[in-house]
Each structure stands twice: as C-alpha cells, then as structure tokens.
Amino acid sequence: MKSDSNLEKVLSAGHFAVTAELGPPKNADPEVVRKKARMLKGCADAFNVTDGQTAVVRMASWAACLIQKEEGLDPIVQMTCRDRNRIALQMDVLGAAALGINNILCLSGDHMSFGNHPESKGVYDIDSIQLVKMVKDMRDEKKFQCGEEMKVEPRLFIGAAANPFADPFDYRPYRLAKKVAAGADFIQTQIVFNVPKFREYMKRVCDLGLHEKVYILAGVAPIKSSGAARYMASQVPGMDVPQEFVDRMVAAIKGIPSPKSIADPEKKKEVRRRRREAWQAEGIKICAEIIQQVREIPGVAGVHIMAIEWEEAVHEIVSQAGLLPRPTV
C-alpha cells in the first residue's frame, strides 16, 4: 500500500469504489462540515473536499478534510495550482499528510475570472500534471521538487482529474496517459451524462492500457430540475448533457400545475414542494441509472458522485444503484 487510504484499500481489493463530494461552506462554521459528514458517512469510501471550486472563496479543503476525518470519514484533499506556487503546494502536501489525510486530488483549478474575486492574480506556477509528479516524487523518492531530500515522506494516494468531454476529444486519452506517467494512482472524471461518448473514450483509454495502471472513477451527478438540466446542457463549459435527460426532467413534473398559476400562497408552496420532489426523484433515478451503465464499461473502477450543494441525495443514489453497504477492508 502506498498510503493508509481507505479508497486505496477498497480499490486494490477489487471492489467497485464510490467517492462523493463534500462542499465546504462559504464561512467558518465547522458544523456545516460535520453535518454533511454525518449525513454522508457510510455512503462512499472516500470524500472529496473541493478547493475554491469555481474560484469562489470557501473553507480551505485541508481544514474541512480534518473535520470530516474527526467524524470518521476518509477525506480526499483537493489542491489547485491556481492559488499556490510550488513552495506553498509542497507545504500544504506535508501539512495534509501530517494531519492524517491520505488522499489528494491534483488540479489546475478554475480560472479566477469565474469566481468572486476576478481581480485577483492567479499563480499557475506549475500545472496539474506537474503537481501529480511533484507529489509522487515527494512520496516515492522522498524528494522535494528542487531535489532536496526529506526525512518523513507524505504517504498520499494520488488522484488527478480527466474531462473526457473536453476538446480535442482525440487527445484526451493521451492527456490521461500523461497523468498516469506523472504518477496518478486514481482518476476522477468530469460528470458523465453522455454515456456513449464516455464509452468511446474508455475504449481508447483501455486500448492504451491505462486502465491497468490507474483506477478510473467516472464522475456522476444528480440533476436538480429541468432548469438545471437546460443550464448544464447549454451554459457549463465541458459538460455534455444529452437532450433525453432534459426531456425526462421536464416530463417528471407533468400533471403538476405551475406555481405561477396559483394565487393562494399555501397552495403555491405545496405545488412548489411537489414539483421539487418530482424533479429530485427523477434526477436521482437518472443518476443511479448512469452509475449502472458506466459500471458495465470496461476499465471503470468506480464512481465519483458530485451532488453539488445537495449532499442529501447521495445516500439514495448509491442505494438505488445497488452500491450499499460499502465494503469494510
């Protein structure tokens, strides 16, 4: 074993792994993390905490990881190159490992222009692939990026991201190969809605033999409403949502009157609740179906569930997908 990671144990024992995202709060309240951790416990094998996702300031990933670890979860610290140079990154890698965090996901990071401080200066001293290599050299060679040696190495299970739906499509499997060559142990992909396209990507990945060198976890997410489906389909770069799912989300609330047509505030509320529940049920169902489909694709070693600001959905998703209980290894 390269680390004390539960995720590594589950994967190397040959189980189909599940990871889930735990979004840290936009404030200093540890209870938010604790509550989510208690809710998610037992639903997955390890839990990612995002690192300033979409360049919005939130609680530091390592700090929220420590809180979920106190709750008995196996955290995955996400680390982006956007806000730290190689000095800061290596310090945080040592710190995270010292706190008992066993997994790291290495990312370039969303550009500052997306977030709430678009006037900030980005760092981007190194990129995500170089970060993977740097963490691997720290762990396996006990060496800092500069070549200096250290006494106690950070024993981390190293992850990287992949977006099979970004361009150029033909190059994506080769970029994954670079991440593997750099030292990635596991991969979490962008959210998969377009299963046929993902299947084609995975075929090429397997042709390169990459599935034998790295564990690939397919990203999935529940859709919250028909509006969210349309938004993801048209507005989010790198997201490929087939029309079929947009249609199903629209059909989910068929027969429920529009809240706009109702004057009585109590009845309006009731109709809103019914719509929300119908949408959520369908969104969760679609997500569980996608999990079952990607599970059949050769080379897929697990799934990564990104229920962004909807962690309540995770239990139902894994349950419907037949992935409970999680193995103890």
Partner: peptide, 21 residues
C-alpha cells in the same frame, strides 16, 4: 493559455475556445 499551462489543454477547452471566455 490563460493558466500558462505547459501540459495543456485543461478540461475547460471547448470548441477551440478557452474556458474563461
């Protein structure tokens, strides 16, 4: 490249355009 990557393109590359715009 908006992120000065040496091992690009990142996952935000779409239709030949950069994720920032």
């Amino acid at each position: 490249c908006s992120k000065s990557l040496l091992n690009g393109p990142c996952g935000g590359s779409q239709n030949g355009k950069c994720e920032i715009n």
